[in-house]
Design a protein around this nucleic acid. Structure first.
Length: 818
RNA sequence: GCCCAGAUGGUGAAAUUGGUAAACACGCUAGCUUCAGGAGCUAGUGCCGGCAACGGCUUGGGGGUUCGAGUCCCCCUCUGGGCACCA
């Protein structure tokens, strides 16, 4: 009979649900494992292959651990705030709250159809006041420590989404990551979280976590630590000084001009009258450029002379001060000393504007580039001459420090996290503005500041919350006078920065999360999600976790100890997305083959981290495998009631078929454990298929005891990958208990793994000429004799002189002959 | 421009990390079987030559190290991802 997957899968899902089989006892810390997938964004679209690809295999890993006796916690929830729901509301008039709650109900049904062992009691959604209340609490804690602050700053603005974007949300071509509209710059007063306070620890912490190297590199580059020096340059005709940052203080003697960022506060002050007009024109032209346009390396350098001069402190030379958009106000001090001899950008600029170039490092003979960036002895640098770069740096920094005009300095590219969003569907910022008291945080006992239902969320560039007067107008918590609420909401990445803590007790009302559970269940042991979050979510969550640690609420330094990225499933090479209309809907496959087969097929497709192009070719192979397993098990219905299998057999006492079977079962089990542990599901499935092929040959010639031995192991290995079938088969075999309520895992009989004969390959001049079946660990002489007795080997060595023979035990015998 | 990852049959891929390349599947071919259904079973299947034994070639291209290279080193081509004037 064909496996009635549809009936069986729904029956098991109902059973797991009704009996809360997957509820985790979080008080049991022995062998505790926290296995987490990135929570789901509840859009109106159905779950697609990408979701299944993320969740299915991760669940299989969790189930494997569960069968091995671990206490596994695997929750699922909803990242429910955010732009798409709001944009949908603008299009359709359906309120984000209504559409989101409906979507969540639909998605929950689809998630359950996957058959994952989610602990549904731990389910959470970020749009619930009980959740976002604690975003506000987090904001207030940061505020108290001076790590949440407000400033007027030029920000990335998406004219289509009508909101601010974090740097991380602007794509490299200068467009909005959500809608593709070119991002522009706009000055606004916004809230920031001071992630830069943790820059150094965020960088150092990468060494301690088991994450993909690629992701760590990306964070490293994003944080961008550099070592250098700050130095003060006096102006020639003013009292002011200009602070510069440089990574090459050793080249100070080559500083032939200075460049300020066009936004530098000193520009206005120092610009001479005759240059004023041109400078202002230039500033204006720069303003209209986005940061991406400004920083494009492809663009030719532009800039303009201010008319002012500074004094190079090492040689008292008068050097001109320019402004140029290649100097950014947001990095370092917003001013540089330009050393065209040792910096490519300065070289380009100096050439274009005909500024002097002095070499301060001797390039090697034959150097043909323009600016020389490498090491070498200092030249034209007075007391630094002859020193290499490192020594020159040290000496000049000492010199600057002695004079009191400079010091060594570490800089980061990382910028503070801008969290204000001029949108509705998010967490209100818990701040009110009072005429007399100014900016006042909402007291914790007045949280949550609830998001009102009734607002006008048409995009007009302002915050939709401003349209609800009842919300906006409040009284000052300090003086009681009329005051206005902040009408912006928080970036949804705030929500996802600590949700893994909330899962542990989502109904907890005494705090953001249950402290003792947070203490014992972090860091998360296994975190699985898309690589696109490398510099956003995954960096923000690390920052927030460290902050929460510093509040004394957890003692772990990192939120996610082990991280794995699932690959992307594409369709004809294009990433699947609703807007492109190329989403492959799993429903048809579930209908035809069931969720077990679909999950297993996704795992079998290829390496998990690689993803791949979608194709349904081959799903029938997995289906056939499942059918063969089912009919084999069915043939042995109730077997466990009649016989008992031993945990180990003496292989010598078994017949040939049995020996083969016994060995294969143990080899498979051993391989399987390693492969699943490392998320190499494709080879784990292949190993099970191989085992199945062996079973077909050997099982009929084996004793009932050994049949049971093999089937038990086959089924327990299958169960994590195809959980419904696993349970079903276990019952057919005659067990009353279910596998996932009463986990069973068998240990490997290492002795059985060893083959008593091995195949030794005989090569002549590196080419395979014969294969010898010989007892394991045969003596070299025996192998040699056998090798030279081989007809084909004789043929290829005849008339030649044997120069050398190499024997690798149990593997290869290579004859070098001429 | 810089950094990272990758390229293996008709297809998805495997290869104990320097030791039999192509496991496991899909597809294809032939045969058997069933009240042709998108079913099952058996055998074959990297390419070229040969009835066969066997031989030659083969892991994007070129060079190198080695008894031996998909794996290590150098150069090149292409693909995917990240960064992009950070002084």
């Amino acid at each position: 009979m064909r496996y009635p997957f549809a009936e069986a899968e729904l029956r098991w899902q109902k059973y797991w649900d009704d009996k809360k089989v997957h509820k985790t006892d979080l008080s049991d810390l022995e062998k505790a494992i926290y296995c987490l997938v990135m929570f789901i964004y509840p859009s109106g679209a159905k779950l697609h292959c990408g979701h299944w690809y993320n969740y299915g295999p991760t669940d299989s890993w969790a189930r494997f651990k569960k069968l091995q006796g671990y206490n596994v916690f695997e929750p699922m929830g909803y990242d429910a705030f955010g732009l798409p729901a709001e944009n949908y509301a603008i299009q359709t008039g359906i309120h984000p709250k209504d559409s989101t709650l409906t979507n969540i109900d639909d998605i929950r049904v689809q998630l359950k159809r996957m058959g994952c062992m989610y602990d549904w009691d731990a389910e959470l959604m970020t749009c619930a006041p009980e959740y976002y209340k604690w975003n506000q609490w987090l904001f207030l804690q940061l505020y108290k420590k001076g790590l949440a602050y407000r400033k007027n700053a030029p920000v990335n603005w998406c004219p289509s989404c009508n909101t601010v974007l974090a740097n991380e949300q602007v794509q490299s071509d200068g467009t909005c990551e959500r809608c593709g509209t070119p991002v522009i710059q706009k000055a606004l007063t916004q809230w920031f979280f001071k992630i830069t306070e943790y820059a150094d620890e965020l960088l150092e912490g990468l060494k301690k976590i088991d994450w993909p190297d690629k992701t760590k590199h990306m964070q490293e580059n994003w944080i961008g630590r550099s070592y250098g020096a700050e130095a003060k340059f006096k102006l020639a005709d003013h009292d002011d000084v200009i602070d510069i940052y440089t990574t090459r203080p050793d080249t100070l003697f080559g500083a032939t001009y200075m460049v300020l960022s066009p936004e530098h506060p000193l520009v206005e002050k120092i610009t001479t009258d005759e240059n004023k007009h041109a400078v202002e024109e230039y500033q204006k032209s720069v303003q209209s450029l986005s940061e991406i346009d400004r920083t494009s390396t492809a663009k030719e350098k532009t800039g303009i002379f201010t008319g002012a001069y500074a004094i190079n402190p090492v040689n008292d030379e008068k050097i001109p001060i320019w402004i140029a958009d290649y100097v950014l106000m947001t990095y370092g001090t917003g001013a540089i000393m330009a050393v065209p001899g040792q910096d490519e950008r300065d070289w380009e600029f100096a050439e274009k504007f005909d500024l002097p170039i002095i070499q301060t490092v001797q390039p090697p003979d034959g150097f043909e580039g323009k600016a020389y960036l490498g090491d070498g002895p200092a030249i034209n640098s007075s007391f630094l001459d002859g020193l290499d770069v490192t020594d020159a740096k040290a000496k000049i920094i000492n010199w600057l420090e002695d004079k009191g005009i400079g010091e060594s300095k570490v800089n980061y590219r990382l910028r503070d996290w801008l969290i204000s969003r001029q949108r509705y569907w998010g967490t209100p910022i818990p701040i009110v503005y009072c005429e007399s008291c100014g900016e006042v945080p909402v007291p914790e006992d007045q949280l949550p500041v609830e998001l009102p239902y009734d607002v006008d969320f048409k995009p007009d560039g302002g915050s939709p919350l401003a349209s609800n007067k009842e919300f906006v107008n409040t009284s000052c918590p300090t003086c009681g006078e009329p005051a206005k609420r902040d009408v912006d909401t928080m970036d949804t990445f705030v929500d996802s920065s600590w949700y893994y803590l909330r899962y542990l007790d989502p109904g907890y009302s005494e705090g953001a999360f249950n402290k003792s559970l947070g203490e014992s269940w972090t860091p998360v042991n296994m975190y699985v999600g898309g690589a696109e979050h490398a510099t956003m979510h995954l960096l923000y969550a690390r920052f927030v976790h460290k902050f929460i640690r510093d509040l004394g609420l957890v003692s772990s330094d990192e939120p996610f100890q082990k991280l794995i990225h699932q690959g992307t499933i594409t369709n004809n090479g294009v990433k699947m997305s609703k807007s492109k209309g190329n989403v492959v809907n799993p429903d048809d496959f579930i209908k035809d083959y069931g969720s077990d087969v679909f999950r297993m097929y996704l795992m079998f497709m290829g390496p998990y981290e690689l993803g791949g192009d979608w194709s349904d070719k081959g799903i029938v192979g997995v289906d056939r495998f499942v059918q063969r397993v089912y009919s084999l098990v069915e043939k042995h219905e109730g077997l466990s009631k009649n016989v008992k299998a031993k945990t180990q057999y003496d292989i010598q006492l078994l017949n040939g078929y049995e020996q083969n079977l016994y060995r294969k079962v143990n080899q498979t089990l051993s391989k399987y454990e390693v492969e699943i542990e490392h998320f190499r599901f494709n080879t784990a499935v292949a190993a099970l298929m191989e085992l199945m092929n062996e079973l077909t040959k050997d099982i009929d010639n084996s004793s009932d005891e050994l049949k049971l031995y093999a089937l038990e192991r086959l089924i327990t290995m299958l169960a994590p990958l195809a959980p419904h079938l696993g349970e079903e088969a276990w019952q057919i075999l005659g067990y009353k208990e279910t596998l996932f309520e009463n986990p069973v895992w068998f240990s490997v009989d290492e002795k059985a793994m060893v083959e008593d004969t091995v195949t030794i390959v005989v090569q002549v001049m590196g080419k395979v000429r014969a294969k010898l079946e010989l007892p394991k660990d045969s003596d070299e002489n025996i192998v040699k004799v056998a090798a030279f007795e081989n007809e084909n080997v004789k043929l290829h060595t005849e008339g030649k002189q044997v120069i050398k023979e190499i024997y690798v035990q149990n593997k290869i015998y290579n004859i070098v002959a001429k």
